[in-house]
């Protein structure tokens, strides 16, 4: 993806350079500056994700999934997430984001392909991964604090320790004063924050999050973004974060994986080059989100045409569905 020419304020090098943290940043700054001086087109900040060396933390290899009702939720999905990366999945409703996350968490076994974490195939839920569900998923008979304490105690924490930790994380999600409230007495957004607190308090190496902030107002959401990023940078967690909201993905992610529906598949795997902390109203970010959304719309149109009667190429697809196919998806194709 390329930013429009003639908008020097969008040139990544300058911004990145101001807050460069390491050699990589300054290197990038200089090459981009050089490229600009030599009159070559400047690469945008949203670039195809290059394959990285070294074993990934999470390896999704040619994963397909077909439900019992023959709905193909995923087809030939390949994603490699390295340790410490923050990867956002965006895509239209029903494109298989939750299905993919469930497969990563070990709640469903994909009907094709292989998912491994640290080189070990995923066969069920494990203590290294924790899924934050799209629903609040709290135990309704336990109060907010008890929900956290119960989970923490099952990790072997002592009563006092679990209690202190629960209090700390309830505070972090701005729910002080609600410790002894039952879940059904909270609003939807508050329940999601309790679930977030429970997940963060459990301190897993891999956090899988399914639209955790969809029910929050902009203000609270940005607080939660800050919290999540603070914990992510502090503890070097690996995060796979699902969202409908492209801007949210661009604010949070090192990478944005764009998915399309029917069948669920990966359209693009993009690296986000923007210094942190990011501002959702930064014009560069807004422009990037516009381009991604345009891409999503294009995919949707193509799917609608494909589904139209008379020219249904969907019907000509091999019926193997979940099974891996040879052709790789358009990973890394420039937008």
């Amino acid at each position: 993806m390329r930013p429009r020419a003639g908008r020097p304020s969008h040139i990544p090098g300058f911004r990145a350079g101001r807050q460069a943290h390491g050699i990589a940043h300054s290197l990038r700054m200089w090459t981009e500056l050089l490229a600009r001086l030599l009159g070559r087109p400047v690469r945008g900040r949203l670039v195809p994700h290059p394959a990285r060396l070294g074993p990934p933390k999470i390896d999704v290899f040619r994963v397909g999934h077909r439900f019992a009702n023959r709905v193909v939720a995923l087809r030939d999905v390949n994603v490699a997430v390295h340790s410490g990366e923050f990867v956002c999945l965006v895509g239209p409703s029903g494109c298989g984001k939750t299905t993919l996350l469930y497969a990563l968490a070990g709640h469903i076994a994909p009907s094709g392909g292989r998912i491994s974490v640290d080189g070990v195939q995923v066969t069920g839920p494990g203590p290294d991964r924790l899924l934050v569900f799209q629903e609040p998923a709290l135990f309704p008979w336990l109060t907010v604090r008890q929900n956290l304490v119960f989970a923490l105690r099952s990790r072997g924490l002592g009563r006092a320790e679990a209690d202190a930790r629960a209090r700390e994380y309830v505070h972090l999600v701005h729910l002080d004063g609600f410790e002894d409230t039952l879940p059904h007495q909270l609003s939807g957004g508050m329940r999601m924050r309790v679930q977030l607190a429970r997940a963060l308090a459990m301190d897993p190496a891999v956090l899988l999050m399914d639209e955790p902030f969809a029910a929050l107002d902009a203000q609270t959401r940005s607080h939660m973004h800050e919290l999540l990023q603070r914990i992510w940078t502090r503890d070097r967690k690996t995060v796979v974060f699902v969202t409908h909201d492209v801007r949210e993905a661009l604010v949070l992610g090192d990478r944005v994986v764009v998915m399309a529906a029917r069948p669920g598949r990966v359209l693009h795997d993009l690296e986000v080059h923007l210094p942190r902390p990011r501002d959702p109203d930064d014009p560069a970010l807004v422009e990037m989100s516009r381009l991604v959304r345009e891409e999503l719309r294009r995919a949707e149109r193509a799917a609608a045409e494909a589904a139209a009667p008379g020219e249904a190429p969907d019907a000509t697809r091999p019926p193997d569905d979940g099974a891996p196919r040879r052709s790789a998806p358009a990973l890394g194709a420039p937008l």
Binding site: G106, H107, G124, R129, L131, F133, A137, F139, W141, S154
Partner: peptide, 24 residues
């Protein structure tokens, strides 16, 4: 989803039966 939550939180065995299954 409650059973899955228990699974992802690593709640097993007697704690699962007494703390999740029975109350639920």
């Amino acid at each position: 989803v409650l059973l899955r939550a228990a699974g992802t939180l690593g709640i097993h065995g007697p704690r699962f039966v007494a703390g999740v299954l029975l109350p639920a």
